[in-house]
Simulated scan of single mutants.
Amino acid sequence: MNVLIVYAHPEPRSLNGSLKEFSVKRLRDAGHAVQVSDLYAMNWKAALDAGDSVAHTTGDRFDPSRASKYAFENGLQSADIAAEQAKLKWADAVILHFPLWWFSMPAIMKGWVERVYAYGLAYGVGEHSDARWGDRYGEGNFAGKRAMLVVTTGGWESHYSPRGINGPIDDLLFPIQHGVLYYPGFDVLPPFVVHRTSRIDEQKYAEVRNALGERLDNLWNTAPIPFRAQNGGDYRIPELTLKDDIAPGREGFGVHVK
């Protein structure tokens, strides 16, 4: 199988860097083809702007969505964007590997998503009507592919527990897992999260590495998070709210998981 690892950490000798190298070797040793987008090493441009289309004329009003759509449809995207899109199309599975900084992914990785997820590729796909509201949330161009987060945090596991001060880790990762990944169609696997990174000694590192290895070995066997499909009958369309008989009396992120 083909695996794309999108990796964001500025220090190759970090825990993140070591785990990324371990992942590449583990997957290749198992016979998989692996590509790595090391965003810091690539000096990836994070800001989405008019320069992302080679057709933009100076002085024209810049509309990000319209410009993305036109550039994608007409082969006028900047070369770095097109190259990353080719990797996404090639991949059977995508791993986003990053440290949790200020409750989200690093800015450079967010910029990768904003620039690479073009209109017509990751959004703006499918019929929009009273019966369907696009091919998204379980459908889309990435349907049939798998995705997983490998995330490190400085905080303790208890800090990210259901009653922890930082909020439940599943809630913090929901915009990434449900939005960035499930929205364009990926089957999203439960995340692999490493806590309290500053206290990882050799023994703990070995435990983390072995646990990650098991997750990578089962990348195609692990059951994905059972998010509700937008067009699967649970939501009113076009309001896109859950029907009254679905998870009655409940609210919040959790209601979108079966």
Rank of each mutant, 00 (worst) to 15 (best):
T153P: 04
A131K: 14
M109N: 00
P248C: 02
P168M: 06
D63W: 08
R196W: 13
K110F: 06
K258Y: 13
T241S: 12
H9N: 13
L96G: 01
G164H: 06
D60L: 07
E214S: 08
L219H: 08
R13V: 01
L149F: 11
T58K: 14
V54R: 10
V194N: 05
R209S: 13
K258L: 09
Y160R: 02
R61C: 09
Q230R: 14
A83K: 07
A83S: 13
V257Q: 12
Y119T: 09
N43L: 10
L219A: 01
Y40N: 12
L27Y: 05
P10T: 01
W102Q: 07
A118Y: 03
I169W: 10
V54F: 00
D130G: 13
Y123C: 07
G134S: 04
P175M: 08
H178V: 01
E239S: 07
V54W: 00
I5S: 01
N74A: 06
S104M: 11
F62G: 03
V255K: 12
R26E: 14
P184Y: 08
I246W: 10
L121S: 02
E202Q: 14
A107I: 07
P191V: 02
F103H: 10
A93S: 11
D244W: 09
E207R: 12
H159F: 10
P184A: 04
R28T: 09
G138Y: 02
D130F: 10
L76Q: 15
G17I: 00
R132F: 10
W112A: 00
Q35S: 15
D52T: 02
L149T: 01
